[in-house]
Design a protein around this nucleic acid. Structure first.
Lengths: 246, 246
DNA sequence: CTAGCCTATTTGTATGAGTAAAGAACCCGC
DNA sequence: GCGGGTTCTTTACTCATACAAATAGGCTAG
């Protein structure tokens, strides 16, 4: 028997709907801003000019700008035009923004910052998850672990399972705002692995760590879960550090 | 001598630009969704019908929907229409979403969740801040403390200063994604105070706690800062709990 | 009963005209 | 000269309309 309920809204972390024109324009501009091609304070060309330049209608262009504006990347006012906002206004935890940030390789400090966040959030989340997890949560984690083991982290499916494992833990913590952080965490998780592989092969098999963590959560032992997760993230950070600073 | 640099982009947490029509439509619909007037899975009326009903052009309405879509509240596809997304897709850490959530009084569980997040994030942030704070950071915190002391938490200015104090700490932690959480934290901070007052007056003067925390950060003692912040948030949570459960 | 086409419905895109807001330049009285 | 109000001009914002694309669900042939 398959347990499909609850998975129905799981999709790849593809940036929203880049199929539509407004979506792809937003993605392109957003990625350009994240990559630094437009700096905070810069004024974009006027609507008519820029939309013509991009070969799209003003309607589509404006909708793209609304998207960026909703994520805090730009602000537009009559007479002044549309300008890139200060970094402090950017919604760095927005899933799309993260995806755009990782489109062109992000700065090392950004990756470090994400790991710092993981180090803060995930151990606490693991502790909460150990206290609150349901049978369904456990099933999901178990399934993700299995998939990880089967495919290995060299495959796309394996990395997805890794993400799913960490996401399941955050969801088991039963905290809405915390779940909203899962996309950020997931981004960091994926890039850990990618970096590790880029720097030739796995320095270490991550499966044992994950299994111990899983057992702690199944056993309902918050402090064990916290400690194990701390170790897990610390090791991942260490691996990433060596990959970053060769 | 005043230190104005760096404050130039500080504004009230008013939901973006509700002056423009697309902005106010987005605010209204967003607040309605957050308040539960539209439930996840519900399909909104068609563009033409709904925009006429709201007495705005289809263009403005569509731009509003793009904003909501960018924040994960809705998803729209041809033929199917626009429907409210699953809660797990909502970007609960988005500043606008938080503002909308607090427009109609939010659920108790949501407030508890925010406090849980504070409890996780702020002590760690305080520790980092103690290690990394600059002179400017200290000046800001000091200024905010002064204002808090002068106006007291019964005034709008005093509450703003309280928020500013906590925001300054997060900024001193020198971590972009963490700073993006400041709006969430700030929301929780404000509502603590409002709840406490609703439940007759201050149960306790919060200034001493804040001063001790400030000293720890000035002294550059991470563990002291972490401990003090933990106490501070725990007390705030306790106060809020008693206000929630009368 | 199934695979594949059809079509009706809904959002998406394009275009053009007119409105409102917000700096900047200007004018005027002092 | 100089401050304060006024006009001016640029820009985004709003509106209306037409057409294109996508797709869910029915229809039809096999």
């Amino acid at each position: 028997m398959r347990q499909d309920r609850g998975y129905e809204d799981v999709r790849l972390p593809l940036a929203s709907d880049s199929r539509r024109i407004h979506g792809s324009v937003a993605r392109d501009l957003g990625a350009a801003i994240l990559a630094g091609r437009y700096a905070p304070g810069d004024v974009l060309p006027g609507e008519i000019e820029f939309s013509e330049q991009l070969k799209v209608s003003r309607t589509a262009y404006r909708e793209a700008i609304r998207i960026l504006s909703a994520k805090g990347l730009v602000e537009s006012r009559p007479r002044t035009g549309t300008r890139v906002s200060q970094r402090s206004r950017w919604n760095l935890l927005d899933p799309d923004i993260l995806a755009w940030a990782f489109e062109s390789e992000p700065s090392e400090t950004f990756i470090r910052d994400l790991f710092e966040l993981r180090m803060i959030v995930e151990p606490a989340a693991a502790a909460l998850a150990a206290a609150r997890r349901s049978g369904l949560d456990i099933a999901r984690m178990g399934h993700a672990l299995e998939e990880m083991g089967r495919h290995g982290l060299t495959t796309e499916a394996g990395r997805a399972a890794d993400q799913a494992f960490h996401t399941a833990i955050l969801e088991a913590a039963r905290n809405g705002p915390l779940i909203a952080l899962s996309s950020s965490i997931a981004a960091a998780v994926t890039w850990t692995t990618i970096f590790k592989h880029r720097r030739q092969g796995l320095p270490r098999d991550p499966m044992p760590d994950h299994r111990v963590l899983y057992e702690a959560i199944v056993a309902g032992d918050p402090e064990a879960a916290r400690g194990t997760m701390t170790d897990l993230v610390r090791l991942a950070l260490a691996d990433t550090e060596t990959a970053l600073r060769p």
